[in-house]
Each structure stands twice: as C-alpha cells, then as structure tokens.
C-alpha cells in the first residue's frame, strides 16, 4: 500500500516537473541570439516585411506572454509548426523520435551484452586475456569519438568488405517504410514484410554497433567496479566463510551490483536520445537529435522545444521505470 502511494506521488510530481522543464527550455531558447523571421524571409527581405512576420509569429510580444501562449497550445496537443519542414512538429517527431529510440535501444542492448559480461569477468579474474580485455576496453571506449568509429566501420564493412547496404537512412530508399510502432524492425515484422525487415536490420547494424561499442565502456566500468566492491564486501566474505561455492557468491554479488548498472543504463538511455546526434548525422538517420540540432541552427524554436519535451518525458518515464526496478531488487527501499 505504501508502495502504491509512493508511486502515485511520483506520477503526480511528473506534471510540475514537465512544466518546469518546458519553462527552462523556453527561456534558454529565447536567450539564444537569432531571429527566425530574418532567416525565413532570406537576405533580400525588407525591414517592414520582417517586422510584419514577427508580428504574425507573435515574436513582438513579451517573452512571458509568448510562453503562456505556447503552454496553452501545448495543453491542446499543439507543438507548433516547424518553418523548415512546414510540418506540425508533433507529426515530425512522431516519425523521428521512434527512429532515434530504435537506434538507441538496440545500441544500448548491444552495449549491455558487451559491457556486463566483460565487466563481470574482469572483476572476477585478475589475470588472463578476458581480464586484460576488460581493463583496456573501458579506457579505449572512453577515448574514441563515436562519429570517428562510425566512419571507420563504414569504411571497413561497407566500402572494403561490402557486407552491409549503403549507410544512408533507416531503410532502402526504394522501399515503403512500415508504419506500425515507428520501429522499422518491429513494424516490418508485424506486417510480415521480410524484405523491409532485412533492409532495416542492414541499415541498423553499423550505427547500432557504433553506439553499442562506445557505450559498453561506461557500463563495463560500472559493472567491474561495483562487482569488485561487492565481491570484497562483508556479506560476500561471510558467504565464503559459510562455505558457499564461489559461483553462488558471485551470483549474489551480481544481484547486489545490479542497481548501479541499472542506474548507468538509465542515465545513458536518457542522454543518448540527444547524444546520438553525431551518429545520426553520419548515417543520415533522420532522427530526433538531428531534427533538434537543425532547429537550433536555424532558430526554428518549435522543433527544439518539441524535442526537449519529448526527451524530457522519455527520461522521466525511464527514471520512473528504474525506480520500479530498484523496488523489485532492493527490499531496503520498500520502506
């Protein structure tokens, strides 16, 4: 019962959190120099026409009024329009956000598949090939820029070996993208469209490999250091004193290490929604990060704010889920 009340409280708290995030986002964007009216009308525009457009866009009103207008529209599900794509921002994000989400989700899954086992092995073994690999991996992965690795992967696997199709976009341009779920892989599976599925996988492989290889670094480091601490902790020593086999001691240590790993994964997940933008650009992914960066560069406020709201909401959902996971793992929090 206490748990339900706690969770309900957390959910209720989401609303003021969101309003706060929108406010901060709005102020920051307004603080960035740049006038959309000038950019929209181009270099030949007259001051009069610029002033008129500013009036039409509501840019001549005080910032507080502009914010209230934005909030009011937002309450009705209107995220405004992007002047670059001339589309409603909500429509744009409905396509682009899942694109990024698909990329980042698979990237993180790969990172977990690499980072956790290597982290455990390097925590348990002091010597041997795997321990050395685990030790050096964290260093190397932390030092490599993701876009650079992306280019290397493209060079090796597309240009030299030709194992993957051309690294542009999410699916072969001649194909009709599947519409269900927004994830091309899931969507094509649901529609039973094998050609589209194969093509979307082909396009996913390299960017996912890039994100996975880079982000396995922090996951590995966190797993390794927490596992080491847990294996030396009093309760592990006690389990050894009780004569429990090392395999069981390790399993229990891993469970105690899990909350830290979950934390780093949730932080990475929220961060990568915007942080994967360089990888998106290299692969012309057409994701949400690219969309937001274009918006910032061209004083296109609505896409930027839309992106901020979407990714904030996503992060909040992730953190909320993480809290549920903590509750499931650690009985001490249940009080």
């Amino acid at each position: 019962m206490a748990i339900l009340r706690y969770l309900g409280g957390r959910l209720l708290f989401l609303v003021p959190q969101m309003v706060g995030i929108v406010l901060v986002g709005f102020i920051l964007i307004k603080a960035v120099p740049g006038d959309p009216a000038t950019l929209m009308l181009g270099p030949m525009a007259t001051p009069d026409s610029i002033a008129k457009l500013r009036g039409d866009l509501g840019l001549d009103k005080p910032v507080t009024t502009q914010f209230l207008i934005y909030l009011k529209k937002l309450a009705h599900g209107d995220f405004g329009t992007s002047w670059q794509t001339t589309q409603p921002v909500l429509e744009d994000l409905k396509v682009r956000f899942p694109a990024t989400l698909e990329l980042v989700t698979f990237g993180l899954l790969l990172a977990l598949a690499i980072g956790i086992p290597l982290g455990i092995v390097s925590a348990v073994r002091k010597t041997g090939f795997l321990a050395k690999l685990g030790d050096s991996y964290g260093l190397v992965a932390g030092a490599l820029p993701d876009f650079w690795l992306a280019l290397i992967l493209i060079y090796v696997f597309y240009s030299v070996l030709g194992w993957v199709s051309s690294p542009i976009g999410r699916i072969d341009i001649t194909m009709v993208p599947p519409t269900a779920t927004g994830f091309y892989t899931l969507g094509s599976l649901l529609e039973g469209n094998w050609a589209a599925f194969r093509s979307s996988i082909q396009h996913l492989v390299l960017p996912v490999a890039t994100l996975g290889l880079i982000n396995a670094g922090p996951i590995l480091k966190m797993t390794q250091s927490t596992m080491q601490r847990m294996l030396q902790s009093d309760f592990s020593e006690y389990e050894r004193l009780c004569g429990l086999p090392e395999r069981l001691v390790m399993r229990h240590a891993l469970r105690n290490a899990l909350p830290s790993v979950v934390t780093i994964v949730s932080v990475l997940y929220g961060f990568l929604i915007g942080g994967a933008v360089l990888v998106e650009i290299v692969f012309s992914w057409g994701g949400a990060g690219q969309y937001a960066v274009q918006g910032v560069l061209n004083s296109d406020f609505n896409p930027v704010l839309g992106f901020v709201i979407f990714s904030a909401l996503f992060s909040l959902v992730v953190y909320f889920t993480v809290d549920l996971v903590y509750l499931a793992i650690d009985p001490r929090i249940r009080h």
Partner: peptide
C-alpha cells in the same frame, strides 16, 4: 567450511546479504 567447522561473526547485520 560451514559444515564441519563454522564461524559466528560479529556485526552480523553487515555480514548477511542485504537482498
């Protein structure tokens, strides 16, 4: 260990597995 010879530790709250 723990079967034929065993040990009673001090500060057992810190020694038991918290989870």
């Amino acid at each position: 260990r723990g079967r034929d010879l065993s040990m009673i530790v001090a500060n057992p709250r810190g020694e038991l597995n918290p989870l």
